[in-house]
């Protein structure tokens, strides 16, 4: 292996590492606020890539029906529990949050899908994938929020099969690659660096910094940190732990949507690719000890580098 190849592998590793970093951020975010090891997290990434591909090819993405079904069920469950608790006055707000807002991108998709620019397709994909995670939390995890970590993990694993099954039903079994937004390369320190890699690393860096600032300086970020540190204590000082959980899932959903869009042009995504993609982010998070964001990021970069160098040595092309 000469330096040239080492540099190319380093690029690959950094690109993978950037993606796994974002994934690990999502895992840690969800785990620290809710104790849920969100094993079906990777599926959201697969859904994002599949959705964008469908939009680019003028088909109605299956995500539309998934979001609509989840929103209807989540609203029903939420309204039913509000009515049983006698809090009728909060029903309109629940309908707004759980039904109208999630369904807006669905409506947008149905009305506008043929008249979208490339950027608008990406924005619509994010808007469609974003609400899935909080809706799943409301339907699947909130009713068992006190269950053991193991039960929560198992439910998340089974959820993977359900989502992948749904993706198979609506998107079909073929693998897809989305059309990339960036291509080409730049010269950097005498080495040609793919723009795709630059995009990965800069988006990951942007997200990490953004999250760090968010956690440090905003009230919502501080509330999330308080819930993560001690959820009983946080609820005593007036922080809604459920609100924090929904918010954590929403943020994780945004991250997943963006990761899906980023990796869509580089690897072929199948309906069940989510488990393996998620697993690597999970390993990164575990290497970082699962509680610290910077360590999770470091762990993910290590996973990315190991993957790049190991696959080179294991392949026949060296």
């Amino acid at each position: 292996m000469d330096l040239q190849i080492a540099a190319i592998l380093l690029q690959d590793g950094m690109a993978n590492g950037a993606i796994y970093t974002m994934l690990a951020l999502g895992f840690v975010l969800v785990f620290t606020t809710t104790r849920i090891i969100f094993a079906s997290y990777g599926d959201l990434i697969a859904l994002s890539a599949l959705t964008l591909h469908a939009l680019q090819n003028g088909r109605l993405p299956g995500t539309v029906s998934l979001v609509a079904i989840l929103a209807v069920f989540a609203t029903t469950v939420e309204c039913w529990s509000l009515m049983r608790a006698g809090k009728l006055r909060r029903v309109p707000r629940a309908i707004l949050i759980w039904l109208i807002i999630p369904v807006l991108p669905v409506a947008g998709c149905l009305l506008l899908q043929d008249h979208l620019s490339h950027a608008a397709q990406i924005a619509l994909t994010v808007a469609l994938v974003m609400p899935i995670a909080p809706l799943l939390y409301r339907l699947v995890f909130q009713p068992i929020e006190r269950a053991s970590t193991l039960t929560l993990l198992i439910v998340a694993l089974v959820l993977h099969y359900v989502i992948a099954g749904f993706a198979l039903l609506t998107f079909g079994a073929e693998g897809v690659r989305t059309a990339g937004a960036v291509s080409g390369s730049v010269e950097l320190l005498g080495v040609s660096v793919g723009l795709q890699v630059v995009a990965f690393v800069s988006v990951a860096a942007l997200f990490s910094t953004g999250l760090a600032l968010f956690f440090r300086f905003t009230m919502a970020g501080k509330a999330l940190r308080a819930t993560a540190y001690n959820s009983a204590g946080a609820s005593l000082v007036g922080i809604s732990t459920r609100g924090s959980a929904v918010f954590a899932f929403l943020l994780a959903g945004v991250i997943a949507a963006i990761v899906g869009i980023l990796i869509g042009p580089t690897i072929t995504i199948y309906y069940d690719s989510g488990l393996m993609i998620g697993l690597k982010g999970f390993v990164g998070a575990v290497l970082g000890g699962f509680v610290s964001y910077p360590l999770a990021a470091l762990g993910s970069v290590i996973v990315g580098l190991v993957e790049a160098y190991a696959s080179f040595f294991a392949s026949l092309f060296k």
Partner: peptide
């Protein structure tokens, strides 16, 4: 395809 969804 439905088996796994219903089972889950």
């Amino acid at each position: 395809t439905l088996e796994i969804i219903v089972f889950g």
